[in-house]
Simulated scan of single mutants.
Amino acid sequence: MTTYNINVTLSTAKKEKPQAEKLQFGKTFTDHMFILDYSVDIGWHDARIIPYQNISLDPASAIFHYGQSVFEGLKAYLTKKEQVLLFRPDQNFKRFNQSNDRLCIPHIDEDLALQALKQLIQVDREWIPKAADTSLYIRPFIISTESYLGVAPSTHYQFIIILSPVGSYYKEGLSPIKISVENEFVRAVAGGTGTAKTGGNYASSLKAQQQSGEKGYSQVLWLDGVERKYIEEVGSMNIFFKIDGEVVTPMINGSILEGITRKSILQLLRYWGVPVTERRISIDEIKQAYVDGKLEEAFGTGTAAVIAPVGELFWNNEKMTINNGQTGEVSQKLYDTLTGIQTGALEDPFGWVVEVPSIKYFSPIESQDMIEIP
């Protein structure tokens, strides 16, 4: 693996850290951030860790007008032995470049991205919360920064990583959530950007989410954009159903984001010998399974929530209560196992976790130090 040089400027004004019990998802950010610049004539350059701060962009920057951006989400966990673990970060940066390709953004060096992330975490290690169900959320993203009002791929970009200590994504914790099936709006279609993790996909989901929230539902269940009958995702998560002993999930079809947690769940279930299938699933099939008493569990999967059990589905003015509104056996086992592996409490038979080496940074500095990270 190549060793990269990263300039480090440590903050001279540390922020006050929030109490673990008061953590809200995505509201608090650490003392430092990583930035990497791109220009078409130089390529990616000037890798640096600097104090967390605002960024300055020209009003004509392409990101504001044409939405050329991608992002990722992953977490770092602190074990009882004070080890810092990342969960499958290679898969996140691999998907990051797949999204870059769809948005005509130049690929990043995945080894550099991972090494930069490790070093940033080393600098802000003290920000990783220690309480149960907490972690350090990681948000890598790229924005187009060329000042040009023309519909064309940008010639300048910035790749940035920021960190945020977080608690549970849902205030309910692992308690089952209520979701409504969306009949009016669609999230994505095959051939669009549904398989890329780009901001526009999330902006287009807000109206349906807002209307669903006004009716008391935590998320919406998206149907396909063509026939409006096949299930795709739930909110910003992948979705699974347990029907008559078999776990089923929508197959990747060109409009569904292939989640890292989804991939891990499938591998876990097959490792346990649980029948699991990836295929097209219609909302009519789910309704019939409910009527027949065969719809045993439903749950969403994603980095932020890990597992989100579904206790109620609302479709065509009818409520379907799943597993008496309780967390199912498979959902609970998956959550316990996955979080156990992520936090080092359980053995990792798959080689998913990556440890971040411990390096101590001694005192704030104003000048830049050149530091190499293996």
Rank of each mutant, 00 (worst) to 15 (best):
F25R: 04
F93H: 10
T337W: 03
E355R: 12
G293V: 07
S69N: 15
I265T: 14
I35D: 06
R279H: 10
V8W: 00
I121G: 00
V330W: 10
A298T: 07
R280P: 00
D244I: 06
F25I: 02
I160F: 02
E318Y: 08
T343R: 14
D348M: 01
L36H: 12
K75H: 05
L74T: 14
P59I: 10
H156C: 08
F141T: 07
E233D: 10
G302D: 02
E232V: 13
G173Q: 08
L78W: 04
Y148E: 14
Q115R: 01
F350H: 09
V151T: 09
P357S: 08
C104Q: 09
L103V: 07
Q210F: 14
V226T: 15
E258C: 14
Q158S: 13
D111Q: 15
D124S: 03
K80Y: 04
G273I: 10
K130H: 08
Q368R: 03
K178Y: 06
I283P: 02
T3H: 06
A345R: 11
T321A: 00
P59T: 14
E214P: 06
I371Y: 01
Y137N: 00
I162F: 03
V354H: 01
T337Q: 01
P349C: 10
A132C: 07
S180T: 11
G273V: 06
G259F: 12
L334S: 07
G328H: 02
I143S: 00
K130A: 15
I35K: 14
A304W: 05
D124F: 00
E246L: 02
V306M: 01
N238L: 10
S168E: 13
A132G: 05
V248D: 05
Y230L: 12
I105G: 02
P59L: 04
K263I: 07
V166S: 05
K80L: 15
Y230Q: 15
S39K: 13
V186R: 07
